[in-house]
Amino acid sequence: MQNRFFPLFVDITGKNVLIVGAGKIALRKAKTLLEYGAAITVVTKEVAEPEFLKLKDVHIEKREFLEHDIKDKFLVVAATDNAEFNNYIYNICKLNNTLVNNITSKTDMNCRFVSTVETSEYQIGISAKGNPVKSKALKDKISEFLKK
């Protein structure tokens, strides 16, 4: 059964967010979360994207992920290149009623990042049910429309 996601805009300023992994997609998620004021901790065995080390306000712990890492986290992003491990993180979060975004699955998550169009008057979130290429294409069309 495919997840049905309730669209919701939420203030994450100062909210504790855990990102497991430090690759290209994890970096993109971290940058997005920083734009909205999240307090980010990254747990990773190695930093695959050196740009992570330049991000201010991101706490990096080079070590193995431990189940208790999700304690007191508002959101967890399972962003490793190992789908089985990301699914393991998802299951821990699900059991603990914690929001989790799994980058390697369209179904084993309970929240999803959206493409966002922001103007002085609007904030529009776009989801193509897990297809980022389609989301970006619609984002570009909406952005062009709003410029008119």
Rank of each mutant, 00 (worst) to 15 (best):
N3S: 09
N3L: 12
R4T: 14
F5A: 03
F5H: 10
F5D: 03
F5M: 12
F5S: 07
P7S: 02
P7G: 09
F9Q: 00
V10C: 13
V10D: 07
D11Y: 07
I12H: 14
T13M: 10
G14H: 14
G14C: 04
K15M: 02
K15D: 03
N16R: 14
N16A: 12
N16G: 06
V17Q: 07
V17W: 05
V17K: 02
L18V: 02
L18E: 05
I19T: 00
V20K: 08
G21E: 09
G21I: 00
G23D: 10
K24T: 10
I25R: 09
A26S: 15
A26E: 07
R28C: 05
R28Q: 06
K29W: 07
A30L: 08
K31F: 07
K31Q: 15
K31N: 05
L33D: 01
L33G: 01
L34K: 09
E35C: 11
E35L: 15
Y36L: 04
G37M: 07
A38P: 09
A39P: 02
A39T: 13
A39V: 08
I40L: 11
I40H: 06
T41I: 02
T41Q: 11
V43R: 00
T44I: 05
T44N: 01
T44E: 05
T44H: 07
K45G: 12
K45Q: 15
K45F: 05
V47W: 06
V47G: 03
V47Q: 07
A48R: 15
A48Q: 15
A48I: 11
E49S: 12
E49A: 14
P50F: 09
P50S: 13
F52Q: 08
K54Y: 06
K54D: 15
K54G: 08
K56T: 10
D57A: 14
D57V: 02
